[in-house]
Design a protein around this nucleic acid. Structure first.
Lengths: 129, 129
DNA sequence: CGGTATCCTATGTGATACTG
DNA sequence: CAGTATCACATAGGATACCG
C-alpha cells in the first residue's frame, strides 16, 4: 500500500474547489432546473412556467452557472425572433445518481430531523417558568 | 412492466423543506465539522484548530444548526472552567454514505467541469478581433 | 474555554423596468 | 422571446471586541 495513512473509509472531507462546485450545482434553483431538463429540452420561458417561483434574473444566473460548469447546454435555435433551447449534457446526467442518493437521505430522515428540531426549539424555550 | 422507461419523473425534484434541510447540512462549514467529529468527539477549540479558516462565529452557528437538526450533540462536561464536547449522532452518521457518493461525483468530474469552465470563459472573451 | 455582541461587506435573491 | 439593468433587501460570513 503506497497510499498513506488515510485508508479510513471515505469521509466528509472536502477541499475548496470541490466545495465551490458543489455550491454551484446544488444552489437554490439548480435542481429544479435540472429536473425539468432531464425530461426534455426547454426554452427559457418553458422553465419559467415550470418553475413559477423563480425570477427571470435568478433563472438566467442559474442557467449560466450550470452552462459554465458543463451541466447544461444552451443553443440558439433562431435569431428572429430569438429562440433558445437548454438541454442537460451527458455530464449533467451523471449528477442524477448522487443527487438521488442525497435526496433519498433527506426524505428518509426528515421525520427524525423534525423531531430533533422540535426538541431543540422546546429546550430553548426557557420562558421563565 | 408497469414502469415505462421515462417514468423517472422527479429525479432532481426537491420540495422546500427538503431544500432547507439540504442547505443546512451541506452549508459552508458543516462537512468540515462532520469530518472531524466522525473521527472523534471534539471540544470547541479542537474544531477551531482542526479547521483554522472558520471563524468563531461561523463555527458556533454551524454547530448550533447541526445540533438543532440532530446531526451533532453538544454536552457540557464541566462548568468551571467551561468544557463542552461535540459528538456526531447516529443520525449524523447516516449522512456519510450519501455525502460520500456526492463527493465522489465531484472528484470524478472535476476535470471535465474545469474543461467546461475554460471553454465557457474563453468563449466569453471576445477581445475585439 | 466557549462562547456573545457588534459592525461591516459581499452575495443571493426578488421586484421592476427596459431592450434587441 | 430571452434576456439585461437597476434598485432594494435579507442573509452569510468575516473582523473585532468583550464576557462568564
Amino acid at each position: 500500500m503506497p497510499e498513506t495513512t488515510d485508508s479510513h473509509e471515505g469521509e466528509f472531507r472536502i477541499e475548496h474547489p470541490h466545495r465551490e462546485l458543489l455550491d454551484q450545482v446544488l444552489d437554490k434553483w439548480s435542481l429544479s432546473v435540472l429536473n425539468e431538463l432531464c425530461e426534455r429540452p426547454c426554452r427559457f420561458n418553458d422553465l419559467r412556467r415550470a418553475i413559477p417561483e423563480v425570477t427571470q434574473k435568478s433563472l438566467t444566473a442559474t442557467l449560466r452557472r450550470l452552462e459554465r460548469n458543463g451541466i447544461v447546454e444552451r443553443s440558439l435555435l433562431s435569431s428572429r425572433p430569438v429562440a433558445v433551447e437548454y438541454r442537460i449534457t451527458p455530464l449533467g446526467k451523471t449528477m442524477r445518481p448522487p443527487v438521488e442518493v442525497l435526496l433519498e437521505w433527506v426524505a428518509a430522515h426528515m421525520p427524525e430531523v423534525e423531531r430533533a428540531r422540535r426538541a431543540f426549539d422546546d429546550d430553548g424555550d426557557d420562558d421563565g417558568a
